[in-house]
Nucleic acid binder design. Structure first.
Length: 188
DNA sequence: AGCGGGATTTTCT
DNA sequence: GAAAATCCCGCTT
């Protein structure tokens, strides 16, 4: 049985489709819920992608089936999370760059030691807010304690497109997507 | 508001 | 040994 059929497309197709979908995290009996408002696509044919130079222990989840979580550690202190897309064997994923808190705000504030948009307006910030670390690398997003909830696509008129953030190569590719209505977008 | 630097460790060259 | 899909703080305007 295949869940999340929409995730089996190329990441640049999936990335805007993930806007408006929910991430539901169960933590210590509480539910933390965030609405995805900013995403970036990465693919093995793309020089900015972790999968560009082929499969390694670090990026192997990217080459697996769609619907799993790829978590990586960077800058010596931060975790970032991606949703794997595409066909099995294709190194593709969508980086979740920002979410809008829907439920469990007080616990997110506590975890982040920040309030308001500073809770979740960046890829490493939302991972800290939702307690996502390497233990969730390879996690099946149809299962507890972290689930993706699919929603109908948001109206295209609310989607902005831009170059991706924080990369040194591939800056010409317009694979960043965000919901222009959300104050939680990491930058405009 | 915007810039510059430091934190800190994994990963690959 | 360098760079990294980042964040935070402090300083300047």
């Amino acid at each position: 049985m295949k869940h999340f059929l929409f995730l089996q497309a190329s990441p640049e197709i999936v990335a805007p489709r993930l806007l408006g979908c929910l991430l539901v995290r169960e933590l210590n009996g509480e539910q933390l819920i965030g609405r995805i408002v900013e995403t970036e696509a990465y693919h093995q044919t793309d020089v900015a992608s972790h999968s560009y130079r082929g499969e390694t222990p670090r990026n192997s989840v990217m080459f697996g089936p769609a619907g799993f979580l790829y978590v990586y550690f960077t800058y010596g202190m931060h975790y970032c999370c991606n949703i794997v897309t595409g066909a099995e064997g294709e190194g593709a994923a969508v980086l979740i760059r920002a979410i809008e808190p829907i439920e469990g705000q007080s616990l997110m504030e506590q975890r982040r030691r920040r309030t308001g948009i500073e809770m979740t307006n960046g890829p490493a910030k939302l991972c800290q807010a939702l307690a996502i670390d390497k233990a969730l690398n390879g996690h099946d997003l149809t299962q507890s304690p972290l689930q993706l909830i699919e929603y109908p696509p948001i109206d295209q008129k609310f989607i902005a497109i831009s170059p991706r953030i924080g990369i040194s190569q591939g800056k010409d590719v317009l694979w960043r997507f965000y919901d222009t209505r959300s104050p939680y977008v990491s930058r405009v």
